[in-house]
Computed example of a mutant assay.
Amino acid sequence: MQFHQHAIPHWQPPFGYPDVLTTSEDITGIEVETLFRVFCLYTLIERPKITSGETFSLDSDSPIYLLRQESCTIFEDDDLFYNPYGMWNLVSHQGPEQTSALTCMMQQVLLTLLTYDMKMMKMY
Results as ranks from 00 to 15, higher is better:
Tyr42Cys: 02
Leu114Ala: 05
Lys119Tyr: 04
Phe3Val: 15
Tyr65Cys: 04
Arg47Met: 12
Gln94Phe: 10
Ile8Ala: 13
Ser71Lys: 10
Leu21Phe: 00
Gly16Pro: 06
Ile8Lys: 10
Met121Gln: 02
Gly53Ala: 00
Phe15Lys: 09
Pro48Leu: 07
Gln94Ala: 06
Phe3Ser: 13
Tyr85Ser: 14
Asp77Ala: 07
Leu102Gly: 01
Val91Thr: 13
Ile45Lys: 15
Gly95Cys: 09
Gly95Lys: 05
Met87Ala: 15
Asn89Tyr: 01
Met118Leu: 11
Leu44Pro: 00
Met106Lys: 09
Ser62Cys: 06
Gly16Phe: 03
Cys40Glu: 09
Ile64His: 08
Met121Gly: 03
Gly16His: 03
Met120Gly: 00
Gln107Lys: 14
Pro63Ala: 15
Asp79Leu: 00
Met105Pro: 00
Leu44Phe: 01
Val20Phe: 12
Arg47Trp: 05
Arg68Cys: 08
Gln69Trp: 04
Gln94Val: 06
Ser71Asp: 09
Phe15Cys: 13
Thr103Leu: 06
Gln2Asp: 10
Glu31Asn: 11
Pro13Tyr: 04
Lys119Thr: 05
Trp88Met: 02
Thr34Pro: 02
Asp117Trp: 06
Asp78Val: 04
Leu58Ala: 03
Gln5Val: 00
Ile45Gln: 12
Cys72Trp: 05
Gly29Val: 04
Tyr116Gln: 03
Asp59Gln: 01
Cys104Ala: 14
Thr51Glu: 12
His10Leu: 14
Glu97Thr: 09
Leu90Arg: 12
Ile74Gln: 14
Lys119Cys: 12
Thr34Phe: 01
Met123Phe: 02
Pro63Gln: 06
Pro84Lys: 10
Val91Tyr: 13
Ile50Ser: 01
Leu35Met: 04
Asp77Met: 05
Trp11Leu: 14
Gly16Asn: 11
His4Arg: 13
His10Trp: 10
Ser62Pro: 03
Met123Lys: 14
Arg47Phe: 05
Phe75Cys: 07
Val91Asp: 08
Leu111Arg: 10
Glu25Asn: 14
Leu80Cys: 05
Thr55Lys: 08
Leu44Lys: 00
Gly86Tyr: 15
Pro13His: 04
Phe56Asn: 05
Phe36Met: 06
Ala7Phe: 04
Asp78Glu: 10
Met120Lys: 00
Leu66Ala: 07
Phe75Ser: 09
Lys49Cys: 01
Glu97Arg: 14
Ser60Pro: 03
Thr112Cys: 04
Gln2Trp: 05
Ser71Ala: 11
Phe15Ser: 15
Thr28Ala: 09
Ile45Val: 13
Asp78Arg: 01
Trp88Gln: 07
Glu54Lys: 00
Glu31Thr: 08
Asp61Phe: 08
Gln2Phe: 15
Thr51Cys: 03
Leu80Val: 07
Arg37Glu: 15
Cys40Lys: 12
Cys104Arg: 15
Thr112Asp: 09
Gly95Phe: 03
Ser100Gln: 01
Ile50Ala: 02
Tyr65Trp: 11
Leu113Thr: 05
Asp77Cys: 07
Leu41Trp: 11
Pro9Gln: 06
Gln98Asp: 06
Phe39Ile: 06
Met121Thr: 04
Thr23Ile: 08
Tyr116Gly: 01
Val109Glu: 15
Gln12Met: 08
Ile45Cys: 08
Tyr65Lys: 00
Thr112Asn: 08
Glu70Asn: 09
Leu80Asp: 13
Gln12Leu: 09
Arg68Ala: 11
Gln5Glu: 01
His6Phe: 15
Met120Thr: 03
Met121Val: 08
